[in-house]
């Protein structure tokens, strides 16, 4: 396994963990919560990596995580 894919796997795991915390909140709040967390604590490179991963096959990303990362992508490009 290349280190890049291993890093992706790790980021997916971390992002899913974050999303899992927010699942008990109303959907819109949960998405916003995940986005805000990624923006506040992840480096720009980590955010880019997870956005690229989501833009690809998005393997392993839970639905809430995927939606949040997609929203992060939109707000980052805006």
């Amino acid at each position: 396994m290349s280190s890049a894919s291993s890093q992706d796997e790790k980021l997916v795991r971390m992002a899913n963990q974050i999303a899992q915390y927010f699942t008990s909140q109303p959907h819109d709040q949960a998405v916003a919560g995940v986005v805000e967390h990624l923006r506040s604590f992840w480096t720009p490179k980590m955010r880019r990596q997870i956005i690229d991963h989501a833009a690809g096959d998005g393997a392993g990303l839970e639905p809430l995580t995927l939606e949040a990362v997609q929203q992060l992508a939109v707000s980052s490009s805006g």
Partner: peptide, 18 residues
């Protein structure tokens, strides 16, 4: 203005070569 790396991020990034 962007957050930097945490210790585990630094180590992961080191293993990845960056």
């Amino acid at each position: 203005h962007e957050p930097g790396m945490r210790i585990p991020n630094m180590l992961d990034e080191a293993v990845a070569g960056g």
